[in-house]
Design a protein around this nucleic acid. Structure first.
Length: 260
DNA sequence: ATGACTAGTACGACTAGA
């Protein structure tokens, strides 16, 4: 089962590029972030024609997440538990029914948090506390499960081409990285780093100042796997070449292959 | 050192992103 995550930065603007990538990469499941669309405006037909089931959790103008799946989806839920007053669409989960096994899949768009310090940073850290609670529950289920998406976290210095540019940024500040590590240390496997070490592996390049051409990137899109999911991982890659195409997102797809 | 780009909303500049 091939599962991908892709912050598309607007479904309306990204539809041709997204469809081209889906047709070539052929993921069984794609977790999308920043659809920037309400549910009713999401172009579900384009995906249904390709054999995907479509579940969205949209919002006007900002945020919004979705799951595309060629396999049946069950028990879809929307919104990260823990704060009924949170109206930002950043979390969706579903159970994907594989040939032999089922897996619980959570798609997330973690708050950016800038400027830090400030209320947006407080929201990011509070959101990560709620994420930790949900993460603990997934582990306690002792089933294959994963949480994937745009974490807006640069885990280590090697995950930025120019870490010195990020020291005061909400994506790299010590509190942000510590909150990410607390979740990892519950017992999750960060899929990409379980398979690939070293610098110059990025999932985001700013639109400005020729960041892509200079390979001035950061790695902020991640897969966190429960032990039962990590046991089944056979590959994890970043489709960086997509960033060089016409009208690209500023993020690129990251995907894993699981033997389930 | 600074500024730079894109998307959405809505049609004129804003907010937001990272």
């Amino acid at each position: 089962m091939k599962i991908a995550t892709f912050n598309i930065n607007g479904i309306k603007a990204r539809l041709p590029a997204l469809l081209a990538w889906l047709d070539e990469a052929q993921p069984d499941v794609a977790l999308l972030q920043e659809i920037k669309s309400v549910d009713d405006a999401f172009p579900r037909q384009d995906f249904e024609e390709r054999g995907y089931n479509v579940e969205t959790h949209g919002q006007k103008s900002f945020n919004g997440v979705a799951i595309l799946s060629k396999l049946p989806l069950e028990d879809v839920t929307r919104g990260l538990p823990g704060d009924e007053s949170d109206e930002q669409a950043r979390w969706i989960e579903a159970t994907v029914m594989g040939e032999r096994d089922a897996i619980r899949i959570c798609g997330l768009y973690l708050p950016n948090g800038n400027p830090a310090p400030g209320p947006k940073y407080d929201y990011k850290l509070a959101w990560m506390e709620r994420l930790q609670t949900r993460a603990q529950q997934l582990l306690e289920g002792e089933m294959p499960a994963l949480m994937a998406g745009d974490y807006n976290i640069i885990p280590q210095a090697e995950d930025a081409a120019r870490p010195q540019d990020w020291t005061e940024d909400a994506l790299y500040r010590p509190e942000s990285r510590a909150a990410f590590r607390r979740i990892l240390n519950l017992g999750f496997t960060e899929a990409f780093r379980a398979r690939t070490q070293g610098p110059e592996h990025y999932s985001f390049w700013d639109y400005q100042a020729g960041a892509w051409q200079k390979n001035n990137g950061i790695r902020i899109d991640h897969f966190l796997l429960t032990p039962q999911a990590a046991d089944k991982m056979v590959d994890c890659k970043i489709d960086a070449h997509v960033r060089g195409r016409e009208k690209p997102s500023d993020h690129v797809p990251v995907w894993i292959e699981l033997d389930i």
